[in-house]
Design a protein around this nucleic acid. Sequence first.
DNA 1: TTTCTGAATATGTCTAGGCATATTATGATT
DNA 2: AATCATAATATGCCTAGACATATTCAGAAA
Lengths: 234, 234
Amino acid sequence: MPRYREIYESLRQKIVLGQWPPGHRLPSEHELARSFGCARMTIGKALGALADQRLVTRRRRAGTVVNAPRPQESVLEIHDIEAELLAAGVSYAYQSLERRVRRANAADAAALGVPPGTPVLALTGLHRAGGRPHALEERLINLQAVPEARAERFTDISPGRWLLRRIPWTEAEHQIAALNADATIARRLAIRRNTACLTIERNTWRDEQRITHVRVIYPCDQHRLVARFRYGAA
Amino acid sequence: MPRYREIYESLRQKIVLGQWPPGHRLPSEHELARSFGCARMTIGKALGALADQRLVTRRRRAGTVVNAPRPQESVLEIHDIEAELLAAGVSYAYQSLERRVRRANAADAAALGVPPGTPVLALTGLHRAGGRPHALEERLINLQAVPEARAERFTDISPGRWLLRRIPWTEAEHQIAALNADATIARRLAIRRNTACLTIERNTWRDEQRITHVRVIYPCDQHRLVARFRYGAA
DNA sequence: TTTCTGAATATGTCTAGGCATATTATGATT
DNA sequence: AATCATAATATGCCTAGACATATTCAGAAA
């Protein structure tokens, strides 16, 4: 284990176990370098890592101070449905239900964040796991950003995969919510009306330009999202 | 802007805009140092930041290689309910519905991850926003880990806040799911039976020791989780 | 051809020092 | 007492060089 990591761990312990409470000021880099017997830059690397993890705040002249624990922050991994199912050893298939090129109406424009009239590709499809409906996907693709999507049929390739391979994205936003299945959703997912479903909406950007908006609907018994977080660790 | 950050941004652009596709090998640190006219350590800092963001993978002798885009990873912030409501300018109150000290039964043991028979504190409470029910909370606290909770009544202080201030935690796991409100949930939240609800379950550890398990239930129209992610940025 | 061994190479880490800059503390002045 | 200029200080960033270590590549040996 490299020296700076040892120092990082040693300082981290003091913080997460409460020995150095929030607000406590750490010794200066010079002092730490002396006490650990290393160069100041090595200490700087360890303290920088603590700051990256938001365990401490560093300000010139003011020094390095222990932060209050963050509320509840977590890294959420929203996996590719296909990869997830294949990893679980379940067969996967994508089935196209609707495909339409149109000029964005008001709802499209709001969801995708483009001016009304922009050409969009609207797709609805079903992800099947082991032959049974697994999730319903409603997607809008901005054809100004991804003109080559116009030529693609998406009859049995998931548009998510297709896009992920082709279009580099720089920013994404997820919104997670619950909804009661209406008649259409219930029919397509082969569940009873009013069954609670988990929905994940995702907006994707490439440098200010909107690429796609997608809403994936999972029946409540088929999916949960898991997010794990270790306080002050990579 | 510091030099290493300029270099980081310059390299990042090449990657996220597809100029350097996945699999592409970057010039060596020495070459980059020469072309940017700086010391190797400055390049190392920039490349290290790219690696932290998982934009590249670095291996000795093999060099630095552009990664395939990550599936869909996001930073999820699950805010403290009270802070969230107060920030929105809505009044907040916590109302205790049940409080019971008992030895863990099978369900408690499974949820909290402790052996059956361990003393636990089981709490049920309602978060109210503007006087109306906002979320239902079901919590188990491991009294072996937090003995001082036995003395606390939790009649009008939210146990989440109380714990957050007192107990340093090192690891947390969230699970997000949807469920149909049963009769009890519906009554307590003043919603109709079968209304879809978003549930967030959270397990908290302190160095291997389980501290608490909590499930928060939100009616579908009262809450959505938002997670944002910038590809390759802090 | 295959396998092994050593050389080359890129990164990983570290040192010892330097200048820059933000912020705080201090002391002088009003 | 209040304000302001100045000095002290801690971090932020950087250089130039060094040794360590993992990995690959090329050539030698079987």
